[in-house]
Design a protein around this nucleic acid. Structure first.
Lengths: 339, 339
DNA sequence: TACCTTTGTGTAACCCGTTACACATATTTT
DNA sequence: AAAATATGTGTAACGGGTTACACAAAGGTA
């Protein structure tokens, strides 16, 4: 059915070893022989069988990426960056949704190990470093750090938290609340600490001003409703991610509080969503695509035995000011720009 | 390094054939022997090497899914449905972003063929049926049909288009425009035809009322701006997908047109996004997750040689009415429900 | 000229499972 | 009791590549 290396060898009247040498460009091959073989390959439309090659070489030109849930708007861009980079380098990408469940993570790692997957990019805060060790595969951590021995690609979340909070102060907010992400997720904690760094010097700070949104829009909206009803003095909200910021926007809309005139809102991550709403959402933007291609690049370096330049790669975040933190609703949006 | 079937055989003092019989539960194995082998497997923590198995069996327990772009909000849910179903059945999922480029599609198919990928789920309107034929792999088409010989999982887009348009009429719209998706995409054409089915009987219909949004928010917003400025009589818009509906919402906001009081907007697809905006977006919802698990199920049936029940699987769409098509802004949202 | 190195190619072992086939013993069937 | 069938297990070929090793011929060096 499929043409094999034997067929090509026969067609070109050489041995399989020679064919192998030609297609892999290694060892000595006479110029005439090479041409004969290439002609045979062409004629028979031969494509080497990756599985056979994998078996011998103990590699698969495949990597896995484990994310909590591809439906979370942060991850498609991340995955896209990884996949784009890898296909370019001749690798295919296996997608795994872990739901932050350590058992699922291990199941995926088991399967991948058995398939000789060459390496894994992991977004996780539940996985134990010892587990990774056990599998003895190249691993890099993306968006969330796992252990100092695992090359890590993240942004400075704490500084981002400070940027967001300072921005709200800069535009004149007097009482700033924070919607915090899940307790177990390190980046949520860091963003919160960034907020605290700035806010703890303010004499008006009140512990009620930190609410809990679980990186979920609906929970965030409910919590924001409760907050705004109890503390109508709040005039600025820094949400730990964009989805929660949209929840806050929702709550404000429901309570007929005008954004940004009466309440300024800023999110975190810079997902595409933030440009889609009205008002458009200010955010601390992560270079998601860049981070992911760099992580993929590092993984390939690990796989191919090259030294990793930096174990810890911290990318800069960028404040993007849009309508949700403008005191006058007249800043330039993409819609205006394009007219 | 890794334990192999030989190690297990030695540990249990049996042949490799017997070990293979035990782990695959086929052929005759004495109860005592089985236990001995199982103990050895346990003791050595043996996991069979999938690559060796693949080589012999010419199968890989891996499938591919080709989507235009995982960043498009419609696809994460689709991919999630497929992945969830397949991991359950012991298959892993390779993700491919084609950007609707036939060359990329072929590149992915080449790679997958070489890796003995067992089957492919394709979302494409560019791929030629002859190409699929060439590869001789199990294929199902999802969201977009390819050819009548390829099992297809879609919704009735034309009927959905009619539903959307009729809904706008039902709530009292007098002049209804349509934002059409890309010309080459069949489902965009169908939704447009559904709109026409309803609208062509109206004496007020004007060809200007159909504008072109390319399934893109920004293009849609621009086109809508132009439309509303030229035709202020428009009081209802049916957008060919949710992202374009958000573009229309954006345009309305920019022109200070109140939604839904002055302009009703309805989208198509039912992606999560539609619940996130304020106002929440009415939409013709697709059972995305269901469709994708059914497609995955059919693919497995094909792979394992079972007959496919239906070549063409058309799922029902559902009208979801939310704030963007309510003449009074008081319908129940998830935020209210949860209070 | 004798010896060494480089070039060129084939044979066969190897990667690690699966299974056809052979063979032996146990259980039924007639 | 003989024949037929079911049960249990091992040997070795196989899948389709890669590469160590052997060997031969050509080119270079002293």
């Amino acid at each position: 059915m499929m043409t094999t290396i034997k067929d090509v060898a026969q067609e070109a009247s050489v041995s399989v070893a020679t064919v192998s040498r030609v297609i892999n460009s290694n060892g000595y091959v006479n110029e005439d022989t090479r041409k004969k073989v290439e002609a045979a390959v062409e004629k028979l439309n031969y494509k080497p069988n990756s599985v056979a090659r994998s078996l011998f070489k103990k590699e698969s030109k495949t990597i896995g990426i484990i994310v909590p849930d591809i439906k979370n708007p942060y991850f498609p861009e991340l995955v896209r960056g990884v996949e784009d980079y890898l296909i370019e380098k001749g690798f295919t990408t296996i997608l795994c949704n872990s739901d932050e469940d350590p058992e699922k993570e291990q199941l995926y790692l088991d399967v991948m190990k058995q398939k000789y997957v060459d390496g894994v990019i992991i977004v996780s805060n539940t996985i134990e470093p010892s587990v990774i060790n056990e599998y003895d595969m190249p691993v890099v951590a993306l968006d969330r750090s796992i252990h100092k021995d695992v090359p890590t690609f993240i942004i400075n979340n704490r500084e981002g938290g400070r940027k967001a909070t300072n921005h709200l102060l800069d535009i004149g907010c007097q009482r700033i609340a924070h919607i915090k992400g899940p307790e177990l997720i390190e980046n949520a904690e860091e963003r919160y600490l960034g907020y605290m760094d700035v806010i703890k010097q303010q004499d008006w700070f009140h512990e009620d001003y930190v609410i809990w949104g679980n990186y979920d829009q609906k929970e965030s909206a409910r919590a924001t409703m409760a907050l705004l009803e109890k503390h109508p003095e709040i005039d600025g909200i820094f949400a730990g991610n964009d989805v929660m910021a949209l929840g806050a926007l929702k709550a404000a809309d429901y309570l007929n509080i005008k954004v940004p005139q009466e309440l300024a809102i800023i999110g975190f991550d810079g997902v595409d969503l933030t440009e889609m709403t009205a008002p458009e959402l200010s955010t601390i933007s992560q270079p998601i695509y860049q981070m992911s291609t760099h992580a993929a690049e590092a993984l390939i370096d690990l796989i191919e035995g090259r030294p990793i330049k930096h174990q810890e790669n911290i990318f800069p975040s960028t404040l993007i000011q849009r309508q949700s933190t403008n005191s006058v609703k007249e800043n330039v949006t993409w819609l205006q720009k394009s007219l």
